[in-house]
């Protein structure tokens, strides 16, 4: 936030500051109004619950991506990583059923292995970028292909399905509610709060911002750049594994088509939220709104038949660009200069 304020100069400070922070929220509110006008059922309790639950996957992953991008990195592997972790989780739980039955133990084993895999996969991305001195784009492009083909291989080209003995125990993680909100939404909320605290209230968060602003200066400031950057990928991996833990009970399956394009949706959510793609400035709150905006667009398009199905991608693209332009455009300060 301080970075944004200093960037925008003294004169237009108040004006630009407001637009920057409020941009994604305004965009989301506008979308909701459009959705309601198209069909009042958009604001029904059921649809809002669906919307929030759906946002949880991309949202949780995008919170991890906020750290990676703030520290000047990028992670293209998250979608494939989610698919691979989901696949391995299903395999592990299916074999655990034989020894432990379909109870809580099996689900805990599955969730535990998911977290270990996520941390490990993130660490690999981090180490290859920092110690291996390979650009993050290339490292994660590589691991993206590796994880995607691994899940295809594990599934023998088909679909991995969770044993029906475990489904009964595991299903509530996605479908049940706690004090009126679906459990995935709670997970999303907790991850959001922790992410916000970590980025805005800890030394680690400040180091991420510093590295993203200027890595060379961060090195001279005695920041352990490699370690911090690796940690951002580990956080990303952890977020992917959490998202996977709530994704698997939804349909109980994983295949090569699981998590396709999630990496781009996560990056889009982060950027719509106001984080700068080249690093140095990150906003967890914005990321959450970004994830909600992306899910809402898809939801609204399903609620209307005014727009041809073939143009769904066009609508999504336009809204993403407009949402970012609302915050970045020079129109705010230009008008001020004239007066």
């Amino acid at each position: 936030m301080t970075a944004a304020a200093t960037n925008s100069g003294k004169k237009g400070q108040q004006m630009r500051f407001d637009i920057k922070t409020a941009g994604p929220a305004i965009a989301l509110i506008l979308l909701c109004i459009i959705g309601y006008l198209l069909n009042p059922a958009f604001l029904s309790e059921g649809n809002l619950a669906n919307l929030l639950t759906r946002s949880a996957f991309i949202g949780i992953i995008a919170i991890g991506a906020t750290f990676v991008i703030t520290a000047g990195g990028i992670d293209l592997s998250v979608g494939s990583m989610a698919a691979a972790i989901a696949g391995v989780m299903i395999i592990i739980m299916n074999s655990a059923v034989e020894t432990f039955g379909g109870g809580v133990t099996t689900v805990l084993i599955g969730a535990g292995s998911s977290i270990l895999l996520g941390l490990g996969a993130g660490w690999v991305n981090g180490i290859l970028t920092t110690k291996g001195k390979i650009e993050a784009f290339i490292v994660t492009l590589g691991t993206m292909g590796i994880y995607r083909s691994l899940v295809t291989y594990f599934a023998d080209g088909g679909t991995l399905s969770l044993d029906f003995a475990v489904r009964g125990t595991y299903r509530p993680i996605y479908y049940d509610s706690f004090i009126g909100l679906p459990i995935p939404v709670w997970v999303f909320a907790v991850v959001s709060v922790l992410g916000w605290l970590l980025l805005n209230r800890t030394a680690f968060g400040r180091y991420c911002t510093a590295i993203g602003s200027n890595e060379a200066v961060a090195v001279y400031s005695a920041i352990k750049v490699d370690r911090i950057k690796t940690m951002t990928y580990v956080i990303q991996g952890l977020c992917v594994s959490l998202a996977t833990i709530i994704y698997v009970p939804r349909l109980g399956s994983a295949s090569a088509s699981t998590g396709v394009m999630w990496e781009l949706e996560a990056i889009a959510a982060v950027i719509i939220g106001g984080t700068v793609l080249k690093g140095g400035y990150g906003r967890v709150g914005g990321t959450i709104l970004g994830a909600l905006i992306l899910t809402t667009i898809g939801n609204i398009l399903n609620f209307t038949d005014i727009i041809s199905n073939y143009l769904n991608g066009t609508m999504q693209g336009l809204i993403i660009i407009i949402a970012v332009w609302l915050q970045r455009g020079d129109w705010g300060s230009a008008r001020r200069k004239k007066t």
């Binding site: 059922a41 958009f42 649809n47 939804r250 399956s253 295949s255 898809g298 939801n299 399903n302 609620f303």
Partner: peptide, 13 residues
């Protein structure tokens, strides 16, 4: 499957 789930949720709403 995932798209089938989400599109159907929206149809049902």
């Amino acid at each position: 499957r995932d798209d089938g789930f989400e599109v159907m949720q929206d149809f049902l709403s």
